[in-house]
């Protein structure tokens, strides 16, 4: 069953996160690399505080699609594995939830580079 409200919240929350990034880019001399790294760190901290998962419940993809979700997922992976295996779990669980994103990026990146040429 599809809840249409989620789409509205996804649009609003996702849009707001992106707009915030845009404002940082335009008002400072920071680059996209700075903003994306910063958002990842922010997502991680919010994840550690347990806030980010609440945001995901509320906004769905509006919270899972922005890069901040990557930081959150790293933290969730590290924490949940730490709960099971203690301190070693921080290391083993780190990429538990994010491996899809990284693997997909590497595989599609590699295939795209093999198939296409840069257009300039």
């Amino acid at each position: 069953m599809i809840e249409f409200q989620t789409y509205l919240y996804a649009f609003l929350v996702g849009g707001a996160i992106c707009a915030l990034g845009q404002l940082i880019l335009d008002f400072t001399t920071l680059t996209t690399g700075h903003v994306l790294s910063g958002f990842t760190v922010a997502g991680g901290i919010l994840g550690g505080l347990g806030v980010y998962d609440k945001l995901i419940k509320f906004a769905g993809a509006g919270a899972t699609m922005p890069i901040s979700s990557f930081g959150n997922a790293l933290v969730q992976g590290a924490i949940s594995e730490a709960q099971r295996n203690g301190i070693i779990g921080v290391l083993t669980g780190m990429f538990e939830l994010t491996s899809t994103g990284i693997t997909a990026a590497i595989i599609f990146g590699f295939l795209t580079a093999v198939v296409f040429d840069p257009k300039g």
Binding site: A19, L36, M65, I67, A104, A105, F108, G109, A113
Partner: peptide, 21 residues
């Protein structure tokens, strides 16, 4: 701008554009 860069599409773009370049 950030509308494409901040979502995971931007992460993909940064990886793919570097590999391609």
């Amino acid at each position: 701008g950030a509308g494409l860069a901040v979502p995971v599409t931007g992460f993909a773009n940064s990886v793919v554009s570097s590999a391609l370049e």
